[in-house]
Every structure is written in structure tokens, then in C-alpha cells.
Design a protein around this nucleic acid. Sequence first.
DNA 1: ATGAAAGCGCTAACAA
DNA 2: TTGTTAGCGCTTTCAT
Lengths: 348, 348
Amino acid sequence: MARGRVTIREVAVRAGVSTATASRALSGNHPVPAATRARVVRAARELDYVANAHARALVGGGRKMAAVVVRQVTSPFYAQVAEGVEAEAADRGWLCVVGATGGDPQREMDFVRLMREEGARLVILVGGVVEDDAYRSRVAQYAQALDASGARLVLCGRPAPDPGIPALVVEFDNEAGARAITGYLLSAGHRRIVFLGGLPGNTALDARVAGYRAALAEHGLPPEAAHVVDCGLGRPAGLRAMTELLKGRREFTAVFAGDDMVAAGALRAIAEAALSVPDDISVVGYNDIPLAEDFNPPLTTVRTPAEELGRAAVRIALRDAASAAGRHHLLGTHIVVRRSVGPPRGAL
Amino acid sequence: MARGRVTIREVAVRAGVSTATASRALSGNHPVPAATRARVVRAARELDYVANAHARALVGGGRKMAAVVVRQVTSPFYAQVAEGVEAEAADRGWLCVVGATGGDPQREMDFVRLMREEGARLVILVGGVVEDDAYRSRVAQYAQALDASGARLVLCGRPAPDPGIPALVVEFDNEAGARAITGYLLSAGHRRIVFLGGLPGNTALDARVAGYRAALAEHGLPPEAAHVVDCGLGRPAGLRAMTELLKGRREFTAVFAGDDMVAAGALRAIAEAALSVPDDISVVGYNDIPLAEDFNPPLTTVRTPAEELGRAAVRIALRDAASAAGRHHLLGTHIVVRRSVGPPRGAL
DNA sequence: ATGAAAGCGCTAACAA
DNA sequence: TTGTTAGCGCTTTCAT
């Protein structure tokens, strides 16, 4: 057998027809007599022929391919979003590619460029970012370039640099979610709540902090009641920051972690200090990752339907006309109550 | 601006050169005077040109693309393997695509076919399977087809149907890992250990069960001492099976969960029965997923360096000559001790 | 109903 | 150094 891929020419020869007929028989969108088709199909199967996607794309305008770009696949939240995109894309017969950037803007740019080269028709960028000028111009460029070649860009959980830009944005209402769970802590009696995991400039986190402050204000607390620790996200950050916090005099009765991974770190730090959750300190998280229920104790958190976010991103992108660019879609969230919150120490 | 992608011809026109010169200037592997190159590069940038990967692949033999196929990205273990593949591929300038099958052989076949069409040069299939005739012929077909077009197939954690087949296999030594952790339980004094999460026919699980039985035998226990519950994997399965087990009289003092997700379910079931780990029952898992440390209590488990498995898969595939097909690589594992194991109740 | 031929965008021989 | 040309594998007119 010849090394290299079997081409349609070989199939045609074996079936005793021209390549044009072979192509028609295989694609099935042209009338071809059943007998001829059968011969061609059989030849193709015998040779184990698969069409060259590149050649086909070159002439036919390309395969339906979507790309999701996340920081890392091992983050439970991102993985769920990617799975949602994957599932929705698969349902529609699209191929889905996922790329990880490790948070490096350069790798993000490279990946987007790659997707442009490959002819992806849908690019989905996931996750909050620090919204600086570099970000704005980068995204404006993606949007413009993708749009020029007829592809769609959707921003998941990150802002469009400019409403006029040809990109869709779909995200959770971070401020509302944060307000709700802060309210929950407040109604459990807590008044000194620290927010752990701020990341100044990051749009998602800033919104959560804003919701936290808003809830405090609504309950009549002065602005100084807010205590935000800007340690960033991730379990190690949460562990470190909480350990630090526990060294001083405890000025708080509850902690609101920026996401569930930070909460995991905080929980661990508290346990290492031989303190109890929720008896000594109450803790809440954000995202409700699949294993939040298995933390010690099971974590009260804000459920952000991540898979639905991914599905919505492709659904919206494929439904909306290009003219709907700039549309902003907000998805709702809700609190899931477990066992990490109790009344403040001595409140009873 | 013209709708659709800008081609090299437009760049050439704008730079006042032929397409060949433009191509040479852009690719950089042919001597082109600096001045000419500068003009071309500038024209390309002004037009925001990106090469059509399909056209390039058609003539140049294709981009370096690797594909990883997993059951689901939301499984922490698979996500880590995928991240390893991704990282190693990126290090070498390869594009990496990840596909999820949901465990459906049909989707697996579709995805492999797609990858053949796209010209992937490396396909990595991850995860244990039930090794039946359908599986064997499916994989034999993948291997043969991929090999015919010069692509590599690597099987991660699943067996090659036949040593002669053109595929590499790299996996963990499941039997050794299971034997070690069972031995750990045994030396803590446990004699009645149930294995939770068998999946008869699944190669990975069967190997773990074999290791478990081997350890029991080594400690002089009779074959009847083994108690395997074939509930399959996943947190819900572990929860359900453990709940069931707890209803009867407790004939065991420890449980060896088939993987950490099963352990998570089992832990939850035990907590719901108001029993304590490790005071009443000891529990161990398998894989050491990132959050195993955050379980209640922190889980003693077998560390399988998942990311390293992914990296090794691409490293080996790219290094070994095609003639090395059929080679079998075994990666080692080790126990990580945390707090879910204690002496058996009443052993003191 | 089928074949011949053009052409998708690009790179690599071959000329000049 | 640069341009001309052929051709990658496929689909799709346009003839027949």
C-alpha cells in the first residue's frame, strides 16, 4: 500500500469513475445512480478513505470549528465551561478545540492567531481579566480580525472593550451573586466579614467586591466595614493569605472567598490553626465547583452554572445575527447553602 | 475592505512583489533582501494577514497537530492528563486539540476520524476501557489507518489489542499502586477491606483489583477475604454503593475506593451515616486529584502523576521511531499519606 | 449521468 | 534576487 493518505483519485480509479463522480457519490448532495454510488462507497471503504479536510476546507469554506480558550483546563470552573461549549458544539455537529493559555496574553494571542489560520468560525474567550489598555487593544484587534473573515468572537465573563466592537459577551451577574451571599452572611449575624481573593483590575473579582460592598451598605454598615484582601485566586493564595490573617488578632467572624479554590485554601489554613468552621469562623465561596460539597465542612457558595455558560455562549453566537454584536447577556446565579456558615462566635 | 480573508496575493500586490516573493519573505526560510522583506511584512501587518492553514497544510504536509481524546474534561484526572499533553505539545510548537467522548465509542470513532481528516499527526487516547472484541477491532482499525497516513497512535492507560499493532502504550502500574496501598491498610491493622468501584472488564480497574488481591494474599489472607463491590466509578456511584454497604452489618473496617471520586462519594455516605473516618472506618482512594487534600478528612491515596503521563505520552511518541511501535511504558506511582486511615476500631 | 477542467491559497521547483 | 509555473486534494461549474 502506498505510504501517505488515500486520495479521492484512488477511490475513483478503483470504482472506475472520475474524481468528480466519486466526490458527488461520497458527498451525497448530488443525484448519482444508486449502482454507481454503491461502487464508489465500497471502494472508499475498502481503501479506508477519509477526505482531506484541508483540501475540502480550501474549496468549501471550511469545517464548522469552534475554539474555547481558557486559562487552564485543570481549573474545575473552566473545565465545566469548556465542557459546556464542547457539548453544545457537538450537538450541532461542530468540532470543538480547547486551548489553554496559562494566563499569558502572548499565548492567548498566539492561540487566537492559530485559530484564525485554521479558519475557526467561532472563538470563545473565557475568564475574567485585568482590563487595561493592552487588553482593550488586544481584544479589539481579535474582534476586528475575526469579524473581517466572517468569524464570531464571544467573551465569556470578560468585558467588551467597547460596545461598538463586533463581539458578544455572556457572563454571570457577579455583583448580584456576591451581594446575595454577603447578605446571607449578614443575616446569619455576621458584621465583620473579610473578602479574600481580590484581584484589583480583574473584572470578575471587582464585580464581586462591588457586590460585597453593596450588601454591606444595604445593611447600614459604614464603608470601613469592608475588608478586602487582594491575594488573588487559587488554592495556594487562599491558604497563604488566610494563614497570614490568622496570625493577627481576629477582627472578623466570617470570610467570603473570591472563589471555591480560595475557599479550599482558607479552610485548610483554618484547620491548621486548630479552629473550627463554622463554629469559630464562617466561610463561603464562589462557583460551586463539583467537589465543594466534599470540603470540610461542605461549602456554602454561589452556584454559577458553568456548563450552561459554555452552552449559552455557542447558542447565542450561532443564533444572533452579526448585527447583534455588542449584545450583553447576563446569566443568573443562586446561593447553595451547606454547612460552612453558622452564627458568629458568641452571638447566640 | 473585501469580505472574507485576505490572501497572500493581496499582500504581494500591496508590496509590489509576486506571491512567491511574498511567501518567501514571510516564511523566512529563503534569502530575501531586507528591504523587500520589510515591505512585505509591513503590507501583511497593515492588511492583518494570516496564512490560510488549510492551503499551507495542503502543500506543506500539514501543521503539527496532536489530539487527546478523553472521556470528559471535567474529571480532574483526565483534565490533568490533557493539560500535560497540552503543555508538552505547546513546548514543541505543536497545536493540541482535546476532544471529549462522554464514554461513547461512537463519539470516539467520530473524533478519531475527524482527526484523520484534519491530518493530526499524533492521536492520544486516554483512559481505561472494557477490553472486548469491539474495542480490539476498533483500536486495531485506528492504529492501522493512522499508521497508513504516517500518524502516531498512543494509548494512555489502556491496552494495545495486540503487541504487533502500530501503537505505543504508556500507563501507570495500577497493580503495583493498588498492592502498595492495600499493604498500607494491612499494616495499619486492617484485615477486612472492601474494594469499592470495580468495573469488570475495565483494564485499569481490573489491575487495581488484582493488586488488592495480591496484597491480601501476600499477607497470608485467604482469597475469600477479598470483597469487591462492582459499582463502577464516579462520585454518585461511590455514594450509592457505600450507603448500601452501611445498611447491612459492618463486615469491614476499611474501604479502598477505585478512584478519588468514588472515595468522595464514600466519605459523604459515611458522614451521612454519622460515622467517622478514620475512627470508625478507614478510607483510601486512587489518583490523588488536586482536591483530595481538602476532603473530610484529607484523603490518603495513590499519587498517579497525571500531568506527567500526558507529557510522557507525547515525548515518547515523538521520540520513538515507528519501529518502536508496540512498546509498553510503565510509570510508577506512590502513596501519599494523609488522615483518612487509622487503626481498625477496637484494635487500639 | 458523467467527465473535463478550473480554481481554492499556498509553497517549491525551475527559470530568468 | 525575483517571477513564472505546477500542483497539493477537493468541489463545482460547464460541457457532453
